[in-house]
Amino acid sequence: MTRFGVEEEYFLLDPDSLAPASSAERAERALTDAGHPGAFTGEFLTCQLEYATSPLRTVDEARAQLSAARTAVSEFARDGDCIPGPVGTPFGTGDSHVSPTTRYREVARWLADIAGGHHVCGCHIHVEITDAEERVRALNRLRPWLPVLLSLAGNSPFWHSRITGFRSWRTVMMRRLPTMGCPPLFRDHAHYRHHLDQLIRLRASPDAASLAWAARLSDRFPTVEVRVFDTQLDPDDALLLAALVRAILVADDLAVLPLDTDLIDATLWMAAREGLNAALIDPITGEASSARMLIQDLMLLIQPYLQDAGDDAFVRDRMAFIRSDGTGADRQLAALHAGGVPGLAALLGERVGHSSHAA
């Protein structure tokens, strides 16, 4: 069974304002010393923390690691008078500092005035594909499905204590970077490497690790890394995305159109804006369709691969939940409308370690 991994970035937030709180350096030390599977690391800003699972084969294994990690973050936050924020952008506004590492300082100099306000947290899915040429083919196969996947994954409806009107404001924030959005269509691995090297020479990306495409080839692992997603409200939301991404990437008989990059980028914007209500492009026919219809079509196309991985029942159950309760953005908005900022804070605190499949 094809291995995968999940990386999640979390905010640490003030419990009253839901503004970023600079506690991540202490959190990283405390959580690393606790010896959890996977790895905790600091992130770009001192209000952010990242957790990466070990390479895994099943959704159940991933759920165990993600839930344990989120519970540990929640316990640290409670002791540190803050709350965890499993969201793509924070509700409140606050000053944050760049993490004091050599690399992050260099990236901050490159970003200039973008750096201090770059409050974005993402969920990255790695899928292991050992052959380099097959990784490129899999990346090409995934490209036109990125907007469909993003329509399920919006979890950042707020910015500066306001409702943005977007389901994924993080996507809008990321568009300030020169390499954000859909990757180009590549002929082969040599073409990919040449393109990447050119971007680095131009300083459009300071290094391979800073390449901000919505999906890319990992520079450290033999994986395709999908980076289009906001950090998810619930661990099972992240696991749904992992199961779908893995199935698409291993489905070598899944034929898609070589859609233009600007068309995919336009529909990524629409998916960020309207989520499940977005109008998108069908990767098979090239015609306009609804996100909800394309999700159903995708499920049919990849069902054999979901079944082979043992993910079919879980994916169907989680899809039914999202149809009923909405995406993370929908649930955040509902919590704010029902209970104001305290209601939203309660949702974040409740959901960080929750899994609807947990015992």
Rank of each mutant, 00 (worst) to 15 (best):
T164F: 13
T164N: 14
T164G: 11
T164D: 14
T164Q: 14
T164P: 00
T164E: 14
T164C: 12
T164R: 15
G165M: 15
G165R: 12
G165H: 14
G165A: 15
F166I: 04
F166L: 13
F166T: 05
R167W: 12
R167V: 15
R167P: 00
S168P: 07
S168V: 09
W169K: 01
W169C: 00
W169V: 03
R170S: 05
R170Y: 02
R170E: 05
R170M: 04
T171L: 12
T171C: 12
T171D: 10
T171F: 15
V172D: 04
V172W: 09
V172A: 13
V172Q: 11
M173F: 05
M173T: 06
M174Y: 10
R175W: 14
R175A: 15
R175M: 15
R175L: 13
R175Y: 13
R176S: 07
R176E: 00
R176C: 06
L177P: 01
L177D: 03
L177Q: 00
L177M: 05
L177N: 02
P178H: 08
P178M: 07
P178L: 10
P178Q: 12
P178T: 11
T179I: 10
T179A: 11
T179R: 11
T179L: 12
M180T: 13
M180I: 12
M180Q: 09
M180G: 07
M180V: 12
M180E: 11
M180A: 15
M180F: 15
G181F: 07
G181T: 10
G181P: 10
G181H: 10
C182L: 03
C182I: 06
C182H: 06
P183M: 03
P183R: 02
P183Q: 07
P183L: 04
P183A: 04
P183G: 05
P184R: 07
P184W: 02
P184T: 03
L185C: 09
L185F: 14
L185R: 14
L185W: 15
F186I: 03
F186T: 06
F186S: 04
F186G: 07
F186R: 02
R187I: 03
R187E: 12
R187H: 13
R187N: 08
R187P: 01
D188M: 07
D188Y: 06
D188S: 01
D188Q: 02
D188N: 11
D188W: 00
H189T: 04
H189G: 00
H189V: 04
A190G: 02
A190F: 02
H191K: 02
H191I: 03
H191F: 06
H191G: 03
Y192S: 07
R193D: 05
R193C: 04
R193M: 04
R193A: 07
R193F: 02
R193H: 06
R193S: 04
H194N: 03
H194A: 13
H194V: 06
H194W: 03
H194C: 04
H194P: 00
H194Y: 07
H195W: 14
H195L: 08
H195C: 08
L196Y: 08
L196H: 00
L196M: 08
L196G: 01
L196T: 06
L196D: 08
D197C: 05
Q198A: 09
Q198F: 09
Q198W: 07
L199D: 09
L199N: 08
L199P: 08
L199T: 10
I200V: 14
I200A: 10
I200M: 10
I200T: 09
I200S: 06
I200G: 05
R201D: 15
R201M: 14
